[in-house]
């Protein structure tokens, strides 16, 4: 089928049409606007002060790195942190242990809602203090219901616990079937064999799909460059764990990889004054969590109807 012939311009320009003042004004208006729009769109680049080094830019995907690559990367991170905070950290790349699958149990009868876990987590995991990034959100719920719609996390009484309420801390549930991992377009977040869903902060592009996919409001985004006071920096760091993040990447609870993968309890558990938090290896029949899941009234995995199968269990004493 032949293409239709281009129709002749209905109003051809007169051959002597030069640039009149009017057309000059018009053209310059259009040009100015266009240039200004371009400048405005490029302006964020001016505010960028964290240009990646070539090394970081060319860094390989976590799972493709050889041990030598990783060693170089850890050295680079240590140098970067030292340059920024003046403290030489100890950054490690900790791999999951064999025969270990982590499970967290939280006793709702015991939790008094004191929020110590929230702040111990912030201190341990080098989260931004301003703006605040917190992995744990403690919900206050009226007794006799489990309606999250009635939850309140800005409670500020003189003392806790308050009569008629119970408290439910919510953090990353380390799902067995994690929706956040499914939506990540670049596999920057994945589930490790010990059940921890981790994020490679150097691979994350900050699209925030995972934040939208998570039914537990567990993921946090660094809208700005995180601000951590030097004196509160935790120098014991892990690559997939608590090393300082950059602006524009996601982060979330990772069961304190830098602690739990060397056998220690997570920070939120250590600080809990009531012992409401329990953590351990579910594959070990003698662990506390095995006992709890076998013997206690473990009543929920939060939003279990979604089929995410969390590794975070809430239980009651009675």
């Amino acid at each position: 089928m032949p293409l239709p012939a281009p129709s002749p311009n209905p109003n051809p320009a007169p051959p002597d049409a030069g640039m009149s003042r009017r057309s000059f004004l018009r053209t310059s208006a259009v040009l100015t606007t266009g240039l200004a729009a371009l400048a405005a769109s490029l302006k964020p680049l001016l505010e960028m002060n964290d240009f990646p080094t070539m090394e970081r830019f060319l860094q390989k995907y976590y799972k493709e790195m050889t041990p030598e690559d990783m060693e170089k990367v850890l050295k680079r991170i240590e140098a970067e942190v030292e340059k920024q905070y003046g403290i030489r950290p100890h950054v490690r790349d900790l791999k999951p242990m064999d025969g270990v699958e982590f499970v967290y149990c939280l006793n709702l009868t015991r939790c008094i809602g004191c929020r110590k876990c929230v702040h111990a987590c912030v201190a341990e995991n080098n989260q931004s203090r301003n703006p605040e990034i917190q992995y744990i959100r403690v919900l206050r719920l009226p007794h006799g219901s489990l309606d999250i719609e009635k939850a309140e996390h800005n409670y500020a009484p003189e003392s806790v616990p308050e009569k008629g309420y119970f408290y439910m801390p919510v953090q990353c549930q380390q799902c067995k079937n994690p929706p956040c991992v499914k939506v990540c377009p670049i596999h920057a977040t994945w589930q490790e064999t010990d059940g921890i869903t981790v994020i490679d902060y150097d691979w994350c592009i900050g699209c925030r799909y995972c934040e939208a996919a998570c039914p537990y409001w567990a993921r946090r985004f660094n809208f700005t460059k995180p601000s951590i006071p030097k004196e509160r920096l935790n120098p014991d760091m892990a690559y997939l764990g608590n090393r300082p993040r950059r602006q524009g990447v996601m982060e979330k609870c990772h069961f304190c990889i830098q602690r739990t993968r060397v056998g220690r309890y997570p920070a939120c558990l250590e600080v809990c004054p009531t012992g409401a938090r329990k953590f351990g290896n579910i594959l070990d029949p003698n662990s506390e969590v095995s006992y709890i899941l076998k013997n206690k009234r473990v009543f929920i995995q939060l939003k279990e109807e979604l089929g995410t199968s969390p590794r975070f269990f809430y239980y009651f004493d009675v």
Binding site: I112, G113, C114, R115, K116, V118, H119, E132, Q134, R137, V138, H153, N154, Y155, A156, P157, E158, S159, V160, P161, P273
Partner: peptide, 8 residues
């Protein structure tokens, strides 16, 4: 009972 840590 004890005073709670500051909220978000």
């Amino acid at each position: 009972s004890r005073p709670p840590a500051p909220g978000p």
